[in-house]
Computed example of a mutant assay.
Amino acid sequence: MTTAANIVSNTNTATCTTVAQLRQHIKAWQKQNLTVGFVPTMGALHVGHMSLVEIAKKTCDRVVVSIFVNPTQFNRPDDLANYPRLIDQDMERCRNAAADLVFHPDVKEVYPGGYNSKVQVGDITGRWEGNFRPGHFDGMSTVVCKLFNMVTPTHAFFGEKDFQQLQVIRAMVRDLNIPIEIIGCPTIREKDGLACSSRNMLLKPEHRAIAPAFYASLIAAAKSLRAGEDPGKVSVDIMTELRKAGFDKIDYIGVADNDMLQPLTAPAKSGRILGAAWLGNVRLIDNIDINEGA
């Protein structure tokens, strides 16, 4: 039997580990006609995540943060094993940000015995990240859909740093008639331009020094695109700059439209520059709008 005594609260931030506990809170808020903002995360929270919480607080009456390292969206076992898990630090940051509720389920709560379903979003998942991380978007879409059903928020907040993920979620919500407003939030960067990411803490010092070249190359590329240069040539130029800077391997660099992320083959005044590249054993992704830095 689930009771309020099962729910632990610290400085007004409640922590739930089961769907039953979570729904107690959600039902109480719904009875008051309160809007609920949702920030789904895999933990190892940084200032980028906390900016989503801040925007959610300004937008909604209540804010839920989920912390769940979803095993089904990792295509490499070593990546799952190495993913940072810092739950005590994460909880402290959620309390400091005045999140109303943290949902921290274990794997069996999200994927109980006999679980045998998945959500698969077509087309947009078949390029860029989809080419290099088989199964990633199926796992991500499935867990986000499940979390949406568990939390039943009015709004959900995602960073533009994972732009393809954001567009996949928008497509899923549209196609499945999920009544949630998806809000994309600006990428938060370190002072040197590196996009904030939980994986940044895995970079060796010498690689961390190189990493800002990624954003610098994207900014230079955006300027070239605005001047009318061919997207294919600009993509090659970015790869050349990254190799000169010391990146070990480049998975992809490309220019795409802002909606379904179809590759652009002719000069355009709008779109997105996307890329994924490696420093040592750490894979970094980044993207910017063509008009960023204008």
Rank of each mutant, 00 (worst) to 15 (best):
G122S: 13
N70Q: 09
T72I: 12
T59I: 04
S198M: 05
K223C: 04
G293Y: 12
F148N: 01
T72S: 11
I183V: 15
R62P: 06
G114T: 00
D248N: 15
G122W: 00
Q89Y: 10
M50N: 01
G135N: 07
G130V: 09
V119W: 01
C60T: 14
P71W: 07
G126Y: 07
A98T: 09
S217D: 10
I26E: 02
E292S: 12
A245Y: 13
R62G: 02
D286H: 08
Y111H: 04
T152V: 13
L261K: 06
Y83A: 09
G114V: 03
V102A: 09
M50D: 00
D138Y: 00
A276Q: 05
M140G: 04
R189I: 00
F247Q: 09
E92S: 12
G130N: 04
L225C: 05
T11V: 11
L274I: 11
E241P: 00
K108R: 12
L166F: 13
V8P: 00
V53C: 14
F148K: 02
K249T: 13
G280V: 10
I188A: 14
L202F: 03
M150V: 05
P112T: 04
S141Q: 04
D286Y: 08
R243T: 14
T2H: 10
I55Y: 02
V110D: 00
D61R: 06
T142A: 08
V119R: 01
E241V: 09
R127K: 15
L45Y: 02
F38G: 04
W278V: 01
I188D: 00
T15A: 09
I180V: 15
E190M: 00
C196T: 00
N10K: 12
G48R: 01
T187C: 03
T187R: 01
Q165I: 12
L203S: 06
E206T: 13
S66I: 11
D237I: 06
L45H: 02
P112K: 02
D88I: 03
R272T: 11
S270Y: 01
I250D: 07
S217I: 05
A20T: 11
L176K: 01
R226K: 14
L52T: 03
Y83K: 04
V107A: 14
